[in-house]
Design a binder for these strands. Sequence first.
DNA 1: ATGGTTTTTACTGCGTC
DNA 2: GACGCGGTAAAAACCAT
Length: 326
Amino acid sequence: MSDNARRLQRARTDEETTEEETETDSVSELTCPECDGSLAADAEHGETVCEECGLVIEEDSIDRGPEWRAFDSAEKDEKSRVGAPTTNMMHDKGLSTNIGWQDKDAYGNSLSNRQRQKMQRLRTWNERFRTRDSKERNLKQALGEIDRMASALGLPENVRETASVIYRRALNEDLLPGRSIEGVATSSLYAAARQAGTPRSLDEITQVSRVEKDEIARTYRYVVRELGLEVAPADPESYVPRFASDLDLSDESERRARQLLQSAKREGIHSGKSPVGLAAASVYAASLLTNEKVTQSDVSEVANISEVTIRNRYHELLEAEDGITT
DNA sequence: ATGGTTTTTACTGCGTC
DNA sequence: GACGCGGTAAAAACCAT
C-alpha cells in the first residue's frame, strides 16, 4: 500500500479513531464477498483475509512499499534510491561485475587488438574472483537447489528469500563441514517455510529433496540450534487452507475448521499433538458440521496422516468446542 | 540407551447402501 | 458384499533426558 493510500485511509477513519489498532492494517473500504465483513491484510502470512469469516481473498500478496521509514520529506529524499533490488537468491546478491563477452566498447566499436587482449585477461581474473572460493560455488549450488524445491512445493518467493538467508548464515558460521550442501539447503527451506507461516511437513519436503528424511531432520535441528533460529511450532491453522482446497471444501467449512482449532487452543488440547493431525481432524470435523461429505480416508490422504489419528483428534476437537459453548 | 508419549498399523464389529 | 466409521491392542516413531 502506498503512503498516499495510507494517509487517505487514516483520514477516512479519523472520526472513529477507536477503530481497532491491531497489527493488521485495513486494506480499503472493500468488503468480503461472502459476509460483507471488512478485509484485513495479514502481512505475516502475505494474505488478505476477511475478518468476519476468514475467507482468504488474496494469497501471497507483495509489499511493494519501501522497506524504510521516513519521518519528513527531506529524509524521504535522502533514503530514496533506485537500482535493481539486491536479492539473496543470487549467490553474489547480483552485485558483482560482469564483463561482457563482446569485444566492443561503449559505442559498439570493435576494440583494438591490444585492448582485446587486456579485456580477455580482465575477464579471466574477474571470473576467478567472482567464484573465488568454495563458499561461493557452494552457495551457488545450494541456492539452485532451494529454488528447485521451493517451486516443486509451490512456496512463494519470500520463503525462498528467507531460506537463502538462513543458508547464507549457516555457511558463514561454518556449519557446512561434515554436512551435505543438499541437506542444509533442504533444512533451510523447511525452516523458512515454517517461519513464513506456510509450513510443509517433513514428509512433503522429503519428497522433493535428494536427501533422506532422517538427515534433513538431523541437519534441521542442528541448524536451528546453531543459528539460534526461532521457529515456533507449526500452527495447525496454517495447514487448513491447503487441505480445504485440496478437498474442494467450501469457505464455510474452512472457517468452521479454524473455529474448531481456536477453541481447541483455548482448551489447551493441542499441546504435544502433531499440528498436521489436528489440522486434518479439524477439516474433517468441519466437513461433517457443514454436511459436505468427505471421508476420513480422503482427509488422511491429503494430510498424510492416519485415519486413526484423525478420529482421535476430531473427538477431542468436538469436545473442546462443547466445553466452550456450554 | 531409556522411558514416556504419540502415531501408525492391523484387525474386528457395526450399520447402511 | 463393499464401504465408511469406531474402537482396540500392539508396534513403531518420536522426544527429552
